[in-house]
Amino acid sequence: MNFDMRSTVGVSYVTDKELYTLSPAVQECVDAYSEYLTINKGLSANTVKAYISDIEQAMHILHLRGIDKLDDVTRDQLRSWMAHALHAGMSKTSLARKVVALRGFFEYAHGHDMVQSNPAANLATPKQASRLPEVLNKSQAQAIVETQTVREQEEDHSAIALRDNAMMELMYATGVRVAELVSLDLGDIDLDQRIVRVTGKGNKQRVVPFGLPAMHALDSWINSARVQLVTEETPSAALFLGSRGGRINQRQVRSIVHERARAAGVPDIAPHALRHTAATHLLDGGADLREVQEMLGHSSLSTTQRYTHVSLEQLKKKYEQAFPRA
């Protein structure tokens, strides 16, 4: 059975569970899977809620087509559901997430004898458009790192300004993720050796070098300014502190990067774009791909290879500008 687009074209892809209708038999299987994700997999409440919402949303659409048993679901019907979702305006990214959720659900259902076969076993996610990472050129990167905001200028080398300088220099020098930056402790920094010990995804640690500008900025922050923000509640080990003395959070760092971008007159970027920028500039300067992979903490070399495409695109632009017959 394939979808008649006219019969479900008005269905809204909402996330309000009250608007979903599932048969009691299907709902029982979904509830069992929810318990499995929570107890056996140890997933957080928010993660489980997201998975279950995606599953219920898809099964609701199938219910509207008269499919009320898991054994009645076929791969062709799931593909038709995917086509309907795209037709209704769902993004490929959102649909890919829902397909992954459905695959996990049907794998669980098949493994627990809730369904005779797994219709989602070979269900492919929609192909995503390849997007190159957003990066700044070298002059823009220098501007965002060195240009202070109005707030920082008014405070004139205050603890806040020196902290922001140190964070910007370190992010650009090492390509650390913002989550890694805010979790750094004082003991992770070695100013003499100019290295930082970073704890990345999966609690994997790596040692990343940094240059003199970052060293001077960190020295000014650690040895001159940090004490000005310390309070009785300050975590003794935290490297970067917020204005109230606690460990700085990711939201505050993102806000600082956006403010710096506006002040510097460069494209508005998020902290992750500084990571992309650092990697691209390293490769432009002749760094080895595997060295950049190790520095960024990528588990797969293919992830790092994206930056070679960025460098190639920049080379093409320079070529077209330089050669009249390009």
Results as ranks from 00 to 15, higher is better:
E233L: 12
R244I: 03
D219K: 14
L229M: 14
A225D: 14
R247A: 10
S220M: 13
D219S: 15
Q252V: 06
L274S: 12
G245K: 08
N249E: 07
I248R: 00
A214R: 11
E259R: 12
A273I: 01
F240H: 02
D219A: 15
N223R: 14
W221S: 09
H216R: 11
R275P: 06
I256V: 14
S236D: 05
A273Y: 01
A237E: 15
G245T: 06
L241A: 01
L239E: 00
L239A: 04
R244Y: 02
P235G: 01
Q228R: 13
I256W: 01
P235S: 00
N249G: 12
L239S: 03
A261Y: 06
H216K: 14
A214V: 06
Q252S: 15
G265V: 09
S236K: 05
P235R: 00
A270I: 00
T231C: 14
L241V: 05
N223K: 09
A217T: 10
H276R: 00
L239K: 01
S236E: 13
H276T: 00
D219W: 09
T277Y: 08
R260L: 10
I256L: 13
P235K: 00
V227W: 06
R251N: 11
F240W: 00
L274N: 12
Q250R: 15
H258C: 04
R254A: 05
S243P: 05
Q228M: 12
H258M: 03
E232P: 02
L241F: 02
A237L: 06
L212S: 13
I256G: 04
R260E: 05
G242R: 06
A214T: 09
M215V: 08
A217H: 07
A261F: 02
Q250L: 02
S243T: 11
E233D: 13
V266H: 10
S220P: 03
N223Y: 11
A278K: 04
A214Q: 06
D219H: 14
L274D: 07
A225F: 03
A238F: 07
P213I: 07
I222Y: 09
I248K: 00
W221F: 12
V253M: 09
V257E: 04
A270S: 15
A270Y: 05
H216G: 01
P267L: 11
A238M: 05
A261D: 05
L229I: 08
P235Q: 00
Q250E: 08
D219N: 15
P267A: 11
V257Q: 06
A273T: 04
H276A: 02
D268G: 03
R275W: 00
A263M: 07
V227N: 04
A273Q: 08
H258P: 09
A225V: 03
A261R: 01
V253W: 03
R260Q: 07
E233V: 10
A273M: 01
V227L: 09
H216A: 05
R244A: 05
F240R: 00
L229V: 10
R244C: 08
A238Q: 06
L212A: 15
H216F: 11
P267I: 05
A238W: 07
